[in-house]
Design a protein around this nucleic acid. Sequence first.
DNA 1: CGACGCTTTGACACAACTCAACAACCGTGG
DNA 2: CCACGGTTGTTGAGTTGTGTCAAAGCGTCG
Lengths: 235, 235
Amino acid sequence: MPFVNDHLARKLTTFVKLSPTELAGLAELQSTPVNVPRGSDLMNQGDAGQLAYILHAGWGCSYKVLRDGARQIITFPIPGDMIGLRSILLKTSDHAFSAITDVQVSRISTTRLNTLVDEFPRLATAIMWGTSRDEAITVEHLASIGRRTSLERTAHFFLELRDRLQLVGLTSDTEYECPLSQYVIADALGVSAIHVNRVLRQLRELELLTFQDHKVTIIDSAGLTELAGYDSIEG
Amino acid sequence: MPFVNDHLARKLTTFVKLSPTELAGLAELQSTPVNVPRGSDLMNQGDAGQLAYILHAGWGCSYKVLRDGARQIITFPIPGDMIGLRSILLKTSDHAFSAITDVQVSRISTTRLNTLVDEFPRLATAIMWGTSRDEAITVEHLASIGRRTSLERTAHFFLELRDRLQLVGLTSDTEYECPLSQYVIADALGVSAIHVNRVLRQLRELELLTFQDHKVTIIDSAGLTELAGYDSIEG
DNA sequence: CGACGCTTTGACACAACTCAACAACCGTGG
DNA sequence: CCACGGTTGTTGAGTTGTGTCAAAGCGTCG
């Protein structure tokens, strides 16, 4: 197996138990890793599609840019997440992916993916479960931006991120590394960077959560959950 | 074929040409239609999953409700669109669907869907293309709420709706039926109903678009497109 | 005919944005 | 080793977009 921590396998097996041969197939899909240096783009809006990736390590963001240059971040993929899967069937990619830290990915060969799911149909189901779950997160994000205040929205964001990281074993209950700048968080939450700063201060003063030195500390999980109206992600 | 207008087939064949037997299979999937009276819910948040539908006629909305009772509409499915497909693989449905007018749907049998895509793999590809396209629309909606002003957002909304209706032949270039109240539009755009009213007045005064008597009239398509920063949906 | 839902408008309040300035930090090159 | 520019974080003041509350007009349907 090419990776010590197969985050994708870890994620998918919370949904279905996979046989050793299925796991081997999944591992093989993740071969030939490539590094993407921080600050560079892996794919751009309008790129011809047919390319998808699996993220192994590092932080990045999927985003759209609007005509006036504003940016909306769709999601921060974490290890074990697929990137750009949607663009396989569309003519062009509808979004871009940018590496925030140095990032390690492997390209998914579409043909290999096809033969793999032919051979192991349960793997297809597991992968589609993963994409359904990602979609549900996007929809929750939509509801968050549309109908939550910036304070609720920010609380929700950090709770969801915690649960996603926990699913692949990258965090404890109360603390996790998060190398995002306030500008980047602003583009995800649909507010200005300055306002993110003010909201983070509020969360700190309410003794709910701190975000300092690229580290999130959840002080009062119950209080945050209540404030955000957060339901943990279900399978 | 059970329906004179197979909107789903019309939509999918813009992506791949389907053979007569494939079309027959698709038509059979849409048998046993049921009526959903306006105002009633077809599915609710938290329902046990494993049920999906195809919309044949009428208007409804997929939405989430937040803990405080606020509602965020995710999308207005139109004839030929699938409803609740995501919930097939998740334990519970992450969203609800409510009929705005009387609505005609047919339930998709999961087992029949499975045997069908086994028999006609190209059908699976076509359906997944459709879901990819729906996802792209949701992502665009997210960007719209996060980063466009309410004026741009409203313009974008009506242009996108026009293009979606056009794909299944339910509108001309400049005018379409749209039986949505301003309250409903507000819940889709993430603003208050009163503000929707103000924005619609602005669009009218700018001589870009009118929304009256459940009818949308696009006066200045180019102007609207420019204002909204709208890119037509691509396959 | 009355009740109800939807639209429209005005007045006011408040959340979030913009602009501006400064502090802290970091990697880089002299 | 330090000086430097660039990025990020922090805070204040004033502005603007949007929400809330209130009320009236209008259709439609029972």
